[in-house]
Simulated scan of single mutants.
Amino acid sequence: MSTLSVSVGGAEFGIPAERVREVLRPPPVTRVPFALNGVRGISQVRGTVLAVVDLGERLGLAPVGAAGRLVVVWGGGREAVGLLVDRVVGLLDEDGDEEAAPDEATAALPPGWLAGIAVPGSGRRVALLHLERVLGEEAR
């Protein structure tokens, strides 16, 4: 399975590449009153209104700055969701190893948000996110 690596708050996270629709500069976002944790607001991309989630804030890290990128992913159903990230690192090699997430990493996030750790080589470790759980019902 191919993985898109993104940087958020100084850490590297992996998103399943088959869920990624496109990557672009963030369009204007309209704030939504009383939005839940990490939901920055809504935006329109190519005629589709989508929720915009600040992945840094959602993961308990620093919010994504204005120079970030918007990764549009397919949510749990047929809807698209925009994830704000600091930058897109690239695609991970499908031949890389994968290992279970260490207890320290799983303790830092809510249960089930971490699907494992990718080891693409050269000592890098990329935390693989379980998107359905990270986005949850509240981000849809």
Rank of each mutant, 00 (worst) to 15 (best):
M1Q: 09
M1S: 10
V6G: 12
V8D: 06
G9K: 08
G9I: 10
G10I: 06
G10M: 12
E12K: 06
F13S: 01
G14C: 04
I15R: 01
I15C: 02
P16R: 04
R19W: 04
R21N: 14
R21Q: 15
V23C: 15
P28S: 11
V29Q: 05
V32P: 05
P33M: 02
P33L: 00
L36M: 01
L36S: 04
N37A: 00
R40C: 01
I42D: 01
Q44N: 10
V45P: 09
V45T: 09
G47L: 08
T48W: 03
V49K: 02
V52Q: 05
V52P: 10
V52I: 12
V52N: 06
V53S: 03
V53N: 04
V53C: 04
R58A: 10
L59P: 00
L59A: 10
G60Q: 05
L61K: 04
P63E: 11
G65A: 15
A67E: 15
G68R: 06
G68L: 10
R69S: 15
L70H: 11
V71R: 07
V72I: 13
V73T: 03
G75W: 05
G76H: 12
R78N: 09
A80R: 06
G82M: 07
D86I: 02
R87T: 14
V88F: 11
L91H: 12
D93K: 13
E94P: 13
G96E: 15
D97C: 12
P102L: 01
D103T: 07
E104R: 05
T106L: 02
A107D: 12
A108L: 07
A108G: 03
L109H: 09
P110C: 07
G116R: 04
S122V: 02
R124Y: 11
A127H: 09
L129A: 09
L129N: 05
H130N: 05
L131G: 00
R133Q: 12
G136C: 08
